[in-house]
């Protein structure tokens, strides 16, 4: 029974990983890519790790899987935020069909 639940979690996680990687290829600019891939791949990997926890129970490996979920949920949004900010500071433009860019406007206003 435990093995079947673990297998379901792992398969769902791998499916979300696949969606995230497809988003990484299909989306048109850096910010959209970051958005799609960070969300999907973070939850997918958390699903796989939770499957590992269900499989092993409260042993050394299972507790390590839980800690790894914690680290991942804390670090993945931070690195996405840092990459988005770095890309914007290094001058990567938004997609040409984007609606608005308040950040660029405010930075130009601050420099004057």
């Amino acid at each position: 029974m435990n093995d079947i639940i673990a297998l379901i979690f792992i398969v769902v996680g791998i499916a979300f990983d696949l969606f995230g990687s497809i988003g990484l290829v299909r989306m048109p600019d850096v910010y959209n890519r970051l958005q799609a891939s960070t969300k999907c791949v973070t939850l997918g990997t958390c699903g796989i790790l939770f499957g590992v926890f269900v499989k092993f129970g409260f042993s050394a490996a299972g507790v390590k899987a839980l800690l790894c979920i914690l680290f991942l949920l804390l670090t993945a949004p931070v690195s996405a935020h840092a990459l988005a900010r770095g890309a914007h500071k290094s001058g990567v433009k938004l997609w040409e069909k984007s609606v608005c860019d308040k950040y660029l406007e405010d930075e130009a206003g601050n420099k004057q």
Binding site: F16, F19, G20, I22, G23, R26, M27, P28, D29, Y31, N32, Q35, A36, K39, C40, L43, L94, W95, K97, S98, V99, C100, D101, K102, Y103, L104, D106
Partner: peptide, 26 residues
């Protein structure tokens, strides 16, 4: 919310027309 976000992103990624309308707001 995280589950909802992932299903939303999966639908957007797999849709043939790529229904996005992006921008940076404050």
């Amino acid at each position: 919310e995280c589950l909802k976000a992932n299903i939303d992103v999966a639908i957007r990624v797999l849709h043939p027309k790529l229904p996005i309308n992006p921008g940076i707001v404050k």
